[in-house]
Design a protein around this nucleic acid. Structure first.
Length: 492
RNA sequence: GCAGUCGUAGCUCAGUUGGUUAGAGCGUCGGAUUGUGGCUCCGAAGGUCGGUGGUUCGAAUCCACCCGACUGUACCA
């Protein structure tokens, strides 16, 4: 054999912008989803699920670009040459579902859905190419009372997740108001659609760059930290000031949009949702494409620090609005709709910071160790495991090489097992088992330096008759849980 | 996409003006210890020095291009 018989090892690597989820993450996410679901169900919404793939033309009018069919979305061609894409939000697929079943669905249709969505764009801290959204929508409801309800439900959801009042705010605006502002600065007609977008994008960055940064973007342009230059909207100085005056509330408008906002405000007042929960804010822009009326977003107000300890601008964790034209694309007649989306993945990172994540992580299983590997013994050990499970105790049998007993406890230690059950032939002959408290043993290990003593003293280990094993285990686990609770209370 | 910074072991990093066979700590695995985690000691495995080409007697080191990561910015339905 040649000595360099090393074939090129395949490099194991995760596609960028994607993450593997740990056990803790999954449990936390499940916990969050359950809480959000409870709020939506309570408000009278029913679940629906659509697939992750859709025909590209059903997702939007934008794709695929023939040169770059994967720009923004992940697209593939089916074997009949049709373009399919991974969904980039949950709203467009829902609109497709409603349109396809419009004759069977009773409108207004109140529905929620949760799932992963995919975006083929540059990932960043807290921005991934696969992430989870949780949406609720009402289709076939023309009045702004539906939008108002959505805002209040978003507020309720934040609180259900443990975010205290004052730590979040739902900000509301209306696209029709923004259209009025565009008309004011002479960007009214269709021929100015592109310029309008530039202006709206600039306004959207108010929280990121502040009024002065937005002034630059509305005017000549702005240079970023790396020295790269971004071209501005090219507005005249007086128009720049007009837009800024509107966003800070100095310039008041009077049009359909402001009247709709007034109605919504009246509903918030009637229901007791004050400005500490829902606030009308003229700088909210939100999705630039299909929104036609009210738009709203949920913003977190507490500081979020990343793993490096830096405070990061977190921005919105969810948002939505009215999209009266989305279903119409399919059915031809007006089907008004409004709804919002919560970014589960983003919210989860924020909640982790706030310590509001269910981090009472699952206790590892009790480990039944194996001293003898003969058929009878294996059956006997497995029966011990089953007895523990039948009593509601999370338990497992050691599945590695049983001949190295030290490794079994090493495994139990690293896995975080609370207890280990030991029964060799001696114990078996006497009808007893050893129950080792691994947590207590870890504490004792600090006082023992010599390995021989450490092994012989068998710290934190009790002997009980086999018949009492289950009860003793349950009692020891309960004691450990109580200890953890005391420690947690003390550190608060 | 544009701009900036950076790529050496699984991880964190050292590596002199360009000079033998590229090192350390941590981690992993084995042993000291056929039936007891931790500590300690001993040993081992682990590297296309991001890639390709060039300069040179000689390149981890210098040059060019490419790839990748990070940060900012743009886009984000």
């Amino acid at each position: 054999m040649a000595k360099d018989k090393k074939p090129n090892k395949l490099k194991a690597r995760l596609p960028r912008g994607f993450v593997d989820r740990t056990a803790d993450d999954i449990r936390s996410a499940d916990d969050m989803i359950a809480k959000i679901k409870a709020v939506y169900e309570h408000h009278g919404f029913d679940p629906i699920e659509t697939p992750t793939f859709e025909y590209t033309d059903c997702l939007g009018k934008f794709l695929p670009d023939t040169d770059r069919p994967n720009a923004g979305v992940f697209s593939v061609q089916d074997d009949d040459e049709q373009w399919m894409s991974l969904r980039y939000d949950l709203t467009a697929p829902m609109a497709r579902h409603v349109a396809e079943n419009i004759n069977e669905i009773q409108l207004p249709y109140r529905t929620y859905r949760v799932g992963y969505v995919y975006r083929n764009e540059k990932p960043g801290p807290g921005r991934f190419r696969q992430f989870m959204q949780f949406d609720a929508d009402t289709v076939g409801a023309p009045g702004v009372q539906t939008d108002a309800e959505a805002c209040m439900m978003m507020a309720d959801t934040m609180e259900a997740l443990g975010i205290e009042r004052g730590n979040y705010v739902i900000r509301v605006n209306n696209r029709k108001v923004l259209d009025g502002v565009m008309a004011e600065i002479g960007f009214g007609g269709d021929e100015h659609a592109e310029s309008r977008l530039t202006v709206l994008r600039a306004v959207d960055k108010l929280d990121k760059f502040g009024p002065d940064g937005v002034r630059l973007l509305l005017g000549e342009g702005r240079k970023d930290e790396s020295g790269d230059f971004t071209k501005g909207a090219g507005l005249s100085p007086e128009n720049v000031e007009k837009v800024i005056a509107f966003t800070d509330g100095t310039l008041e408008m009077d049009n359909d949009g402001t009247r709709e906002l007034a109605t919504m405000q009246a509903i918030f007042d009637a229901c007791g949702y004050g400005e500490d929960r829902i606030k009308i804010d003229p700088s909210v822009v939100r999705g630039l494409e299909y929104y036609t009326g009210p738009v709203y977003e949920a913003e977190l107000l507490f500081d979020v620090t990343n793993e490096k300890g830096e405070v990061v601008q977190f921005g919105s964790v969810g948002g939505g609005g009215r999209y009266d034209g989305l279903v119409k694309r399919f059915v031809g007649r007006d089907v008004p709709a409004t709804g919002f989306s919560i970014g589960v993945s983003r919210l989860m990172t924020a909640l982790k910071n706030l310590g509001k994540l269910g981090n009472e992580s699952m206790v590892a299983p009790v480990l039944v160790t194996v001293m003898d590997g003969d058929v009878d013994s294996l059956g006997h050990y497995m029966k011990m495991v089953q007895d523990l499970r039948a009593a509601g105790v999370r338990a497992e049998l050691y599945q590695g090489n049983w001949k190295k007993f030290g490794n079994q406890l090493k495994y139990a230690d690293k896995r975080g097992c609370p207890l280990a059950i030991i029964q060799g032939s001696d114990e078996k002959a006497r009808g007893i088992v050893q129950i080792k408290d691994l947590e207590e043993g870890k504490r004792l290990s600090a006082e023992i330096e010599d390995n021989a003593t450490w092994r012989e003293s068998r710290p934190a280990q009790v002997e009980v008759p086999l018949a009492e094993m289950v009860d003793t285990v349950k009692k020891m686990l309960a004691d450990q849980a109580a200890d953890r609770e005391t420690v947690r209370a003390a550190t608060k």
